[in-house]
Amino acid sequence: MGFKLDYLLSILPRLISAAAVNLRLAVIIMLLALVLGTALTIVRSRKIAAVNACIAVVISFVRGTPLLIQIFIAYYVLPAVGLDLSPEVAGVSAIAFNSMVFVSESMRGGLATIDAGQIEASTALGLPPHAIWLKVVLPQLFRRIVPVLINEATIVVKGTALLSVITVVDVLRTSQQIASSSYRPFETMIGSALVFLVINLAISLSGRLAERRFAAARA
């Protein structure tokens, strides 16, 4: 069974419309990861020993276990403790949780490079703590971690393919469905790979443009 380009082209429209699911979930996940990652960073910066110890345990779990297992836990284990989540919600929660940790870790790294003198100057001017975060610290942090965020976004997009195993009908699951009825896994898998590749190339490219604009704004 050889590779047929016209068959690949004929299934692309179905794969592309399924990609809307991956894109939508990836956007939601990234937004959640940014908001939660920022919140987590602020909580950790308070340096409350007991809180940070708990957070450290959670972080080592997230970093030390496969994302697929974390997704299974959200989908199969959480209902046992009364949290019955739909496949999409469970999947989004698991990946967002995972991503939140990586966002927070890179923000923490960026935080160390922000001169403490700036914070003191802000304090001396009378800026309340929340204004110091919003006007002084976070704008600089976000600019500094743009490359990390772009990278994280591509990982999240790829991660949404894992949700096919908990019945979310995304690009991968759609292509599996097509393959099982047409018996042409070659073209369908190449097709879904292409869809992911194009999305991630677009993200990387726009990320690089955004970085260049930030650099230009600073010069």
């Binding site: 700036q118 100057a121 009378g126 309340p128 600089q140 600073r218």
Partner: peptide, 23 residues
């Protein structure tokens, strides 16, 4: 902190290293 912040603008300080906001 709120009371202190309310009075802080009354005392301007210029640091040795200035500490402007770079962004």
């Amino acid at each position: 902190r709120r009371q202190i912040d309310a009075l802080r603008p009354q005392v301007g300080i210029v640091f040795q290293q200035f500490h402007l906001w770079p962004h």
